[in-house]
Design a binder for these strands. Structure first.
Length: 825
DNA sequence: GAGGCCATAGTGAGG
DNA sequence: CTATGGCCTC
């Protein structure tokens, strides 16, 4: 846009030349020469659409010019190859778990490039996560032999929409430098609106409103378009608040995540010329994880693909697990209707799991109705059956998995040792992680939690970011609100109220409002002095940003020091303070990868992962949702109990639909495993401090018997399970204990275990110990307990011992939980 | 204005 | 049971 005329003409010429080259040379140049990359990088810039179109028009259709066969095709199986070579027209690639979906998708991109069918910038490839986008970029690069810097339109829905919306911001009533609010900002904004609307924010919390509005945006409903049937939402005032929220965002020159898509969708719908332009640009469209698309994304894709219909969607209806987030499985089920004549290609050869694991997964998912249907098969060796084990309570489950992980790590199962990195524990809900963390901490088993609170969501990081945001744009009111009294500047509610009033009555941003307030003498004393310093600071930092002489890293450090924020945490004596200072250092370090603060902020708004990872091998703990797309040789699936998994709440909310989504989640869980998959459940679990019993999950009944191996834990059934009740747990009184054993799942489990020969080749360590343990102790014996460590027996009462532990002091313990300290195992 | 106490709530999680 | 948030007191 702002190129000097001569330069622009030169670039036009250059681009036209590229277009006229044979595609082989083109690819070679593009991927192998730095200058060609630079040219393409320039070409991909959003500001150069004139040049872009010129190039597109001046190009030859070079498709037929390939002489050499493409190298990546040899690595594909027939179905994958078919999916890769069907370049024109609508294609639905139904790719089961572990069938080489990403491989096919990236090969398809490579094929588009290699055959000269499309240039890198004519391909729109959308994913849901940054991780998926990154991986795809890397893999296309590897196939083509170089990093792909010239694929500007490979990214997440949101990242692509940001690029587009910056270009067309004015059509949505925004300036192109709009800010992107995160969830935290949104909620604070809504809270203000709720209070302003005189609604009791206790009964109607902002979080809930945020959820409703998000839901509406996912359905592509603008405030005007929300159907009347939804009007009762949020005390009947949901739509009204939604409209106010949107208006407020507009005045703040801000958007939330949902808006990124919705604004672009409305622009496409209202401006034929804009839509037509992008239909010309994006000649080939690829969509990953199509089963996860919501209505807004679906409509967006349909509009863009509407002309040429060169759209390839990849997905697996059996892995649709984001219905609660607005995803519509219907989108994938309906694909052939939406795009008549579409080719449907099924990828069914699985390269990940053993036949037993696949069969178990298929057995579970078969119970769902309305599937497109796939039959996964594999050439892999038979391997082990899926293992099933019941436990008395959640702690025992955690203990057993800990021991099992250690055993597998040592290779004592008669198999090769596995690294802890090869193992994962997949849970339904994040609170299930805790027993494992507790257990692993006590036995010193290294673990990592995937998907915990993320780096950029931590308080100190968000505070620091707010300072950076103010330095870049001083009129960022939400950022100002966040840090005006952080660190404490003696500016409480009342002072902040005054600033708000002053700003609003003068129609200026909060910083200016604050300045006016001081000048008018409306604020005095310490507060005024501190506020004055803050305002001066913001002015200075903003100057430094504009000036750009100082490196942005030094500037960032200076901002944190001058604002007193670093000092604030240095003076803080809570145990978290050192960690927070560490995080701030990390943040500054992260700046190094960017050229300036603006670039960094843009990046962070869309990318929130925390990728710092060091240390040795660790077992991974994560939710089933977080595990999608990952694979591990060894997978543990604990907590398969009705109510927990399938989740009661999910079933209550959406009935059969919810249950089916839970079942798909089970399918996702099992199919993460390559070699060993262990499902477990506990008869009792402490939930919010209360003991609750549960029946084994109905999904356990759905596991086909021929592919399941029932492991018999010691002391749970087959006699003597009462001994396993932890002391003082209150379980002794539980009348419902027997009920557990009346469920079909349990009976089946017992029937299965009865079929098994008495001695099994693999017995857990505690089983062996157990046999000796019951009668093996005498007063004064040295014993070892997994939780309490070493100690000495001071009394014996049946199967209960009083033990004086060296570290933990006197405790009553059940004999089978201790081992003789003299006997090494 | 800040710190402490009490009440309350508590799936899943991408951008 | 624990984390968070609002309210009340100093």
């Amino acid at each position: 846009m702002c190129l000097a005329g001569g330069q622009a003409a030169a670039r036009r010429l250059l681009l036209a030349q590229i277009g006229a080259e044979s595609c082989r040379t083109f690819c070679e140049q593009f991927f192998n020469s730095a200058s060609a990359r630079a040219r393409l990088a320039a070409m991909s810039s959003i500001e150069e659409d004139d040049a872009f179109e010129a190039a597109a028009q001046g190009s030859l259709s070079a498709r037929a010019m390939v002489a050499r066969p493409a190298p990546y095709l040899d690595e594909l199986n027939p179905a994958q190859r078919q999916a890769v070579e069907a370049l024109d027209g609508p294609v639905l690639m139904l790719a089961g778990a572990g069938t080489g979906k990403t491989k096919a998708l990236t090969a398809r991109i490579a094929h588009l490039l290699w055959t000269g069918t499309a240039r890198p910038n004519e391909i729109l490839a959308v994913t849901f996560t940054n991780k998926a986008a990154r991986e795809m970029k890397n893999r296309v690069g590897r196939l083509m032999g170089e990093a792909v810097e010239g694929m500007p339109w490979l990214g997440t829905f949101h990242a692509i929409c940001v690029k587009l919306l910056r270009r067309h911001a004015e059509l949505a009533g925004l300036k192109s430098n709009f800010t992107i609010l995160d969830t935290d900002d949104q909620i604070r904004l809504m809270k203000q609106l709720i209070v302003a609307a005189n609604i009791d924010e206790k009964r109607w919390p902002a979080r809930q409103l945020a959820g409703i509005i998000d839901h509406w945006k996912n359905r592509a409903w603008t405030p005007e378009a929300v159907p009347a049937g939804e009007a009762s939402a949020f005390n009947s005032r949901g739509v009204e608040l939604y409209a106010e929220y949107q208006a407020r965002l507009k005045t703040l020159n801000a958007v939330d995540f949902g808006d990124l898509l919705l604004h672009m969708l409305t622009i496409f719908q209202a401006h034929d010329d804009v839509l037509a332009q992008y239909r010309r640009w994006f000649r080939y469209i690829l969509v990953d994880e199509y089963q996860d698309t919501n209505v807004a994304q679906y409509l967006w894709l349909r509009l863009l693909a509407g002309g040429h219909r060169n759209i390839c969607c990849v997905g697996d209806d059996d892995q649709s697990i984001y219905g609660w987030r607005g995803a519509e499985v219907g989108n994938i089920l309906r694909f052939e209707k939406d795009f008549p004549g579409a080719q449907v290609i099924r990828l069914e050869q699985n390269y990940r799991s053993t036949p037993h694991i696949l069969a178990a997964a298929s057995g579970v998912i078969a119970a769902n109705k309305g599937r497109l249907g796939k039959t996964l098969w594999t050439e892999a060796e038979e391997g082990e059956k899926l293992r099933l084990i019941g436990h008395w309570d959640g702690e025992e489950e955690a203990r057993w998995i800990g021991e099992e992980a250690e055993a597998m790590q040592r290779g004592t199962r008669g198999l090769n040792p596995y690294s802890l990195d090869d193992m994962a524990i997949l849970v339904r809900a994040s609170h299930q992680m805790r027993p494992f963390e507790d257990r692993f901490l006590t036995i010193g088993l290294p673990y990592r939690v995937i998907g915990g609170p993320r780096f950029y969501e931590r308080m100190e990081i968000r505070d620091a970011m707010a300072y950076f945001r103010l330095a870049v744009s001083p009129d960022d009111d939400l950022a100002f609100e966040r840090i005006v009294n952080t660190p404490k500047r003696g500016l409480g509610d009342k002072a902040q109220q005054k600033i708000q009033t002053m700003a609003r009555s003068n129609g200026v941003p909060l910083v200016d409002g604050a300045r006016l307030l001081i000048e008018s003498g409306g604020l005095t004393g310490k507060g005024a002095r501190e506020l004055g310093k803050l305002i001066a600071g913001i002015g200075r930092w903003h100057g430094a940003v504009l000036d750009a002489r100082e490196s942005h890293i030094e500037l960032a450090e200076r901002i944190l020091d001058e604002s007193g924020y670093t000092e604030h945490w240095q003076n803080d004596k809570t145990p978290e303070a050192p960690g927070r200072l560490e995080n701030l250092k990390e943040l500054v370090k992260a700046l190094e990868e960017f050229e300036n603060l603006q670039g960094f902020l843009e990046h962070v708004a869309l990318i929130m992962d925390n990728e710092t990872e060091e240390g040795g091998a660790k077992i991974s703990i994560m939710t089933l949702h977080a595990a999608k797309g990952l694979e591990f040789p060894v997978v543990f699936l604990p907590g398969w109990e009705d109510g927990l998994f399938p989740s009661q709440r999910s079933m209550d909310e959406t009935g059969l639909k919810g249950l089916e989504e839970e079942r798909r989640l089970a399918y996702v869980g099992v199919t993460r495993a390559e070699e060993v998959c262990t499902v477990s459940f506990a008869a009792n679990r402490r939930v919010y401090g209360q003991w609750q019993s549960a029946l084994p999950s109905r999904f356990i009944d759905e596991l086909p018997e021929d592919h399941v191996d029932v492991l018999t834990p010691p002391g749970l059934y087959g006699g003597g399970y009462g001994a396993a009740a932890p002391m003082g747990s209150g379980l002794e009184d539980r009348a419902s204990r027997a009920d557990v054993y009346n469920s079909p799942g349990w009976k089946r489990l017992q029937a299965r275990s009865a079929e098994r020969p008495v001695s099994q080749p693999r017995e857990s360590r505690s089983m062996v110990i157990d046999a000796e343990a019951v009668s093996a102790f005498a007063l004064g014996d040295r014993v070892f307990h997994q939780k309490f460590g070493y100690g000495q027996v001071t009394a014996i009462e049946g199967d209960k011992l009083d033990v004086e532990f060296d570290k933990a002091g006197p405790k009553k313990v059940v004999a089978r939980f201790v081992t003789s300290a003299d006997v090494p195992f």
